[in-house]
């Protein structure tokens, strides 16, 4: 029982960390139909910006400052999103997908180069804030509070994004543009501005995810690629552009990865890929399909 509980717990941690990165990725695909390879790079920049803010405050931070720092990283990366939209994404809207892939891959390389230039090559490791650096025991289960926090953040990001998309005026406009940008333009909506808002929100989510997940893994210029494959897997399996689908896919893949590792420890790290392949063979349109995008 203890092992099953811990396996579920670890699977959820994997799922929510991945969803935090994938949320912005699926949003941008749902609206702009751009597969943003550079998303991992901006997640990485968010983590490094958060690290620099932490050093500016002299190291370890209370929980509220840790959250503020992550949000500040989100703002910085959101502003970068504004620049990227002006310089790159606007030029990609009417071109073939292959150009988008090449352009965003080039952006990923630029992110890696910028991180190397600004922060250097050394590995960095940051521990969670003191308030999240303990363990909660539930029977025989020991659950690090930081891991619980990641799970909470993933759920909060999902709920927040769902509310934003379905309950706010901006969110509803985004859905309209996602469904039919041509008709939205005819109706007098400022489609360009809605695209811009989407990119900024998506980038800000990547930056904030970087700040929140900074104590989860080492910082290095390789960080941009570490979550990218998982995040793309979740976006694809969820049904391209579906936030709800990405959330469900993250949980499904996280649990399969976790239980796969538990039952077959001699084959580490393959269950995510295996599950992705099998599920897509059975349901190529993904869990939520196309019609429910964003």
């Amino acid at each position: 029982m203890y092992d099953i509980g811990m396996t579920v717990f670890n699977g959820l941690a994997w799922a929510m960390a991945t969803f935090l990165v994938a949320a912005g990725l699926t949003l941008i695909f749902g609206i702009l139909h751009i597969l943003n390879f550079a998303h991992g790079g901006f997640f990485m920049i968010g983590a490094y910006v958060s690290y620099s803010i932490m050093l500016g405050f002299g190291g370890g931070l209370p929980l509220w400052l840790y959250l503020v720092r992550a949000m500040a990283a989100g703002v910085v990366v959101g502003l970068l999103g504004w620049v990227v939209d002006k310089l790159v994404f606007r030029r990609l809207r009417d071109v073939e997908d292959a150009y988008s892939l090449i352009a965003t891959y080039a952006l990923l390389l630029i992110c890696g180069g910028a991180v190397t230039l600004i922060w250097g090559l050394n590995y960095m490791g940051v521990m969670p804030p003191p308030a999240l650096n303990s363990v909660i025991f539930l029977g025989d289960m020991f659950m690090p509070t930081y891991t619980i926090f990641i799970i909470f953040c993933g759920v909060a990001a999902f709920v927040g994004l769902e509310l934003f998309i379905s309950k706010t005026r901006t969110g509803r406009l985004i859905r309209v543009v996602a469904a039919d940008p041509w008709m939205a333009q005819l109706l007098g909506l400022n489609v360009k501005r809605i695209y811009l808002v989407t990119v900024i929100v998506s980038f800000a989510m990547a930056g904030a995810a970087g700040g929140l997940l900074m104590p989860n893994q080492s910082l290095s210029p390789e960080l941009g690629g570490i979550f990218l494959l998982q995040a793309f897997g979740v976006v694809i399996l969820g049904g391209m552009g579906s936030i709800r689908g990405a959330f469900v896919a993250a949980i499904v893949l996280g649990l399969i990865e976790s239980f796969g590792t538990y039952f077959f420890p001699q084959y580490p790290g393959i269950f995510f890929l295996l599950a992705l392949g099998v599920i897509l063979l059975l349901r190529p349109e993904g869990i939520m399909g196309k019609e429910q995008t964003a």
Partner: peptide, 19 residues
């Protein structure tokens, strides 16, 4: 305990080590 290369999450393997 075998762990994958370049992973962002080692919790399942840490759980194995704890056992």
């Amino acid at each position: 305990i075998l762990v994958p290369y370049g992973s962002g999450d080692y919790r399942n393997y840490i759980q194995q080590a704890m056992r």
